[in-house]
Computed example of a mutant assay.
Amino acid sequence: MRSMLFVPGDSPRKFEKAAQGAADTLILDLEDSIVPEKKDEARALTSAMLQAPRTAQQRYVRVNALDTGRTLGDLAAVMPAAPDGIVLPKSRGGDDVRTLALWLDAFEAAAALVGTTRIVVVATETAGSMFGLGSYQDCSPRLSGLMWGAEDLAASLGATENRNGGSLHSPYRLARDLCLMGAAAAGVTAIDAVYTDIDNLAGLEDEARAARRDGFGAKALIHPKQVDIVNAAFAPTAEERAWAEQVVAAFAANPDAGTLRLDGRMIDRPHLRAAEKVLGLSPRR
């Protein structure tokens, strides 16, 4: 999961275009991209899009936040169509995930669904949510990712802007970093926020490469032309793969070693875990 592309839940045309692209995951949106008077219509359209012939892409649905009173209705509309995952906006912490997971248990049983619907939360959209970023550990095995976002957070803080040019202001750098740490602590994917300057593809590439460098595993997107740039930014380079293969091979040849010497440098178990992540392998404990 490198690229997660938002698609308005009321636009089959945009869905068809996105489904032909290279995004790893499509997020059919019932929240911010849908005006209030079209939200009920969007539920039915989203359900139909979920039932379109499947490709390798994952299909998630962003429902409305728990405090809107619309979440259960959203789930009732889309769960029979078996989405791969649900994105929960404005999550306040692990208790919100537990609530959603309980509802998903019921909807999966009612629809006789095979498999487990995953959960991704947008974890930094309100001031209060910042204090819940340490509460996602062990909240549910369904949880697969924490996404951070700056747009709603700016509104929550009463800010006039969240960045100057390409640089985030300090409250949003803090939100980004804490979300990254919260995801790492919970053992799930950290997902970088959307890049809203659609035509600035060089800025997008810089931000995506910085996100991967720091430990993010994916990035949220708002336009199809952003997909290829982000996929390339999150793909390991040939040099990184070669290094990772050397590290994995070294520990495979010395399974009881805690530290080893490779090309004149010391490597230890954290290096092994990093190498396994580069190669897409399940980490060893």
Results as ranks from 00 to 15, higher is better:
residue 3 S to C: 10
residue 10 D to L: 10
residue 11 S to V: 09
residue 12 P to W: 11
residue 13 R to T: 14
residue 13 R to K: 15
residue 14 K to Y: 06
residue 15 F to H: 11
residue 16 E to W: 13
residue 17 K to F: 09
residue 23 A to Y: 05
residue 25 T to L: 06
residue 26 L to P: 04
residue 33 S to I: 04
residue 35 V to Y: 02
residue 45 L to T: 11
residue 46 T to N: 03
residue 47 S to H: 06
residue 48 A to Q: 15
residue 59 R to T: 09
residue 59 R to M: 12
residue 59 R to N: 09
residue 63 V to T: 02
residue 64 N to S: 10
residue 64 N to W: 01
residue 75 L to D: 01
residue 76 A to D: 08
residue 82 A to H: 12
residue 84 D to M: 11
residue 86 I to P: 01
residue 99 T to M: 14
residue 104 L to H: 02
residue 106 A to T: 00
residue 112 A to F: 05
residue 113 L to D: 03
residue 113 L to T: 01
residue 114 V to P: 07
residue 135 S to A: 09
residue 135 S to G: 07
residue 151 E to F: 09
residue 152 D to T: 08
residue 153 L to Q: 05
residue 154 A to C: 14
residue 155 A to F: 07
residue 157 L to D: 03
residue 160 T to K: 08
residue 161 E to R: 13
residue 161 E to A: 13
residue 164 N to L: 15
residue 168 L to S: 10
residue 176 R to L: 07
residue 177 D to V: 12
residue 180 L to R: 15
residue 190 A to S: 11
residue 199 D to C: 04
residue 214 D to C: 08
residue 220 A to Q: 01
residue 221 L to Q: 00
residue 221 L to V: 00
residue 225 K to Q: 12
residue 232 A to E: 09
residue 236 P to Y: 05
residue 236 P to E: 05
residue 241 R to E: 09
residue 242 A to N: 12
residue 246 Q to N: 15
residue 248 V to G: 08
residue 250 A to L: 15
residue 251 F to G: 04
residue 254 N to E: 14
residue 256 D to A: 12
residue 266 M to Q: 09
residue 266 M to F: 10
residue 273 R to D: 04
residue 277 K to L: 08
residue 281 L to Q: 15
residue 284 R to T: 13
